[in-house]
């Protein structure tokens, strides 16, 4: 906040720029949450370039691509802790990055408090489902489930 208050007023030269007539006064934030969220989007993004594009190369390009995917293929991959870790980190980073992105988008477009609230309830519920299911599946995978 201090940064914004100390910023020079844009008045010199041309017509002065009016302050935005926003109805919503900025909530006084006592934490740096938005700063960390902003930083997280950038750091997770850089890691996701490697994780997601690597994943796509493996799943769609190498060795016949999508045609070879099946239960046996996944069993082979999740026999290796390296790929389990890869998938787990990718799951958490992609989901948190996506949730934070959608939170921003909801804040931008949903103007009524009620709408915002319910869209966010939906968003966070879906995130809990995805993170819980995805994590559980990696840790409880059983290659012999068919027998």
């Amino acid at each position: 906040m201090a940064l914004i208050e100390n910023a020079p007023k844009i008045t010199g030269g041309g017509p002065a720029l009016e302050a935005p007539r926003s109805k919503r006064s900025p909530r006084s934030t006592k934490t740096n949450f938005e700063l960390y969220a902003w930083l997280f989007m950038r750091l997770s993004g850089i890691l996701l370039v490697v994780l997601v594009i690597g994943h796509l190369i493996i799943q769609l390009i190498i060795d016949g691509g999508v045609t070879r995917i099946g239960f046996a293929f996944v069993a082979g991959r999740w026999a290796n802790p390296f790929w389990m870790t890869w998938d787990l980190v990718m799951l958490w980073l992609a989901e948190l990055h996506g949730v934070n992105g959608l939170r921003t988008i909801i804040n931008d477009y949903a103007e009524r408090d009620q709408t915002r609230f319910w869209l966010k309830v939906l968003l966070y519920t879906s995130a809990l489902i995805v993170l819980f299911t995805g994590t559980l599946v990696i840790f409880t995978f059983d290659p012999n489930i068919g027998q």
Binding site: G101, L102, V137
Partner: peptide, 24 residues
């Protein structure tokens, strides 16, 4: 594109979870 990928990821984690149901 961000929103699109997000929706795909939701469906994708659910389809992958079927490995816990049965190979078939």
């Amino acid at each position: 594109t961000g929103v699109l990928i997000f929706f795909f990821l939701f469906a994708h984690v659910i389809d992958t979870a079927l490995v816990r149901v049965s190979p078939e």
